[in-house]
Design a protein around this nucleic acid. Sequence first.
DNA 1: GATGAATGAGCATTCATTCAT
DNA 2: CATGAATGAATGCTCATTCAT
Lengths: 180, 180, 180, 180
Amino acid sequence: MKTDPSNLIEVSLSLFRSKGYRRTSMADIGRATGLLKGSIYHHFPNKERLLIEVIQHVIGLFEDGVFTEARRPDLTEKQRLDGMIDAVESYYIQHRVCALVHLWPDALQESAEARELIQKFFRDWRDLVSDLLKPKYGQAEAHRLATDALARIEGAVIWLQIVGEEQALKQCSEEIRKLL
Amino acid sequence: MKTDPSNLIEVSLSLFRSKGYRRTSMADIGRATGLLKGSIYHHFPNKERLLIEVIQHVIGLFEDGVFTEARRPDLTEKQRLDGMIDAVESYYIQHRVCALVHLWPDALQESAEARELIQKFFRDWRDLVSDLLKPKYGQAEAHRLATDALARIEGAVIWLQIVGEEQALKQCSEEIRKLL
Amino acid sequence: MKTDPSNLIEVSLSLFRSKGYRRTSMADIGRATGLLKGSIYHHFPNKERLLIEVIQHVIGLFEDGVFTEARRPDLTEKQRLDGMIDAVESYYIQHRVCALVHLWPDALQESAEARELIQKFFRDWRDLVSDLLKPKYGQAEAHRLATDALARIEGAVIWLQIVGEEQALKQCSEEIRKLL
Amino acid sequence: MKTDPSNLIEVSLSLFRSKGYRRTSMADIGRATGLLKGSIYHHFPNKERLLIEVIQHVIGLFEDGVFTEARRPDLTEKQRLDGMIDAVESYYIQHRVCALVHLWPDALQESAEARELIQKFFRDWRDLVSDLLKPKYGQAEAHRLATDALARIEGAVIWLQIVGEEQALKQCSEEIRKLL
DNA sequence: GATGAATGAGCATTCATTCAT
DNA sequence: CATGAATGAATGCTCATTCAT
């Protein structure tokens, strides 16, 4: 049984994504990892810490899979934006939920640290997009367009989740690509 | 000590909006209404029913405050769309959360009836916007634009909620108004 | 809606017979009588009193339908015993439960008065049968045979209830008849 | 503070015997075992399971103490029947209640599994007695006599329980012995 | 009498957390 | 490190009873 913390985090992420943080019990996590719930406390001092590390893990996945794309120095801004949108689109089509939005209500109520991580993530992401748009649109307009793009993506993912239609996400990817 | 159910529903909505459905206990609702938790069952047979009626109440508020605006037969499509966006914008600036999106994860896990109400609400809203856009854009394009508009609004509200910036909502309102 | 106490008692008996005393709520009784649970307290000061009066009602039914048969001065002992057994047999074939045995565990725990009523009922019944047998068997043997007959009847009713076979009741009726 | 489940079952049986299943709360069981009510769920997933295992335990006691006697291949049928009746008599004189009959109303209402266990127990017991009587009486008559014997025993135990007289049980043991 | 709202104690069950082994 | 037993507080819900109208 793989009991290294990183496996625990991945399993927890998967459970949190489907059932939410609150509804996922330590026993659920134990069951899914082959550990007993008591043993989880050898790896994480409490459930809140687990939430935080799951959030950091998700942020890490975006750093690696999405943001990296947007930062490649060998590409033009256009290429970098397109690469980022490709990564985002396929990520959400696969998972159908934005884990961080999903976890937000719980983070808000139960963990200041988690809350700030999530907020920072979205701001960082927006700033990243803003940087791509700045050469073409200038500081202020780029900031506005980037904020809008991010909100649109999240809205499209919500729509995918609730209404079940992928169209909104594809449409918004399309239009964001057109920005450059 | 006459507790009319509609007061219970409003209090519950307010609690659900800030803490979520799962995290709001019957005792919380009792405390906020001056009742004991057991007494709530005099008005609602169980917590799920309360959730459903809260959702119906929210939908009713939209019917009255937002959809009505979009249906006024005395106005042009442009005026109706603008009226609807005005109503939506001020509603969300005030509440900073879309209660139905907020309740979605709990509804998904705990109540098929609640889930369907929420899904239907978003589809109905989208269809309403689509009807306004149809004369100008035709069936298919209107549907696409309406879906996109709705997802954008919800995304902007999420952004308002998490990042705390109203700008995304204002920006998206602006652009939806420009559709007509 | 008939709200006289005797209707309440009959409805309660029927509910107690099928669900037991403890599992029958005042609301159940209200629902079954067309009253609201609060109104029951106009007729009975509390649930225990209702239990007691239900027990007295059942005893009254036996007095009228079963014991009377056994006391008719115009008949021989043999005829009276047969008449009693006929009445008992058809009563239990119809109801499949001895209400007083069914209520015993609850009576034992919750009401000294109910407990004593039930105990007295069985002793009285036994003495009645004993009186019928005395001329033929003498005091001591009649007492023994009557006790045995009563226990057999109750055992056969239990068997009918749990195993669902009427045979035991018929068999024991037969043998009791053969005593005279 | 090692609480083995079998102790929990015995304590529960004892409580169920005196108060019944429904009236025995998990807190009662906890109190009687030195556990908190929540801790019982470490050993049994729910109260119904506890009921079922208590019933299986009682059946096991009969298997070991009563049925075994009736199955000894080294004895004649007469000896086996006498041994069984001895065991039954002393068991019920000691406990003064047939736990399975006592639990029947609750089992009937709350657990199909418990209900079937109890029904099967009585049928099995009857068949066992029937097998002892078959050589002497033939299949059909043995079945009838065995059913009658079982119902009599249960009736006598009810009588012992309610009226408090042991005589009925002794009388019926006597007569069952006389069958062989 | 009847009503229906409210009470308060109780119940089965869940769960994050602790800790001796 | 892992286990599994235990904790204690909380949760949704039930119910006999009271009482103002």
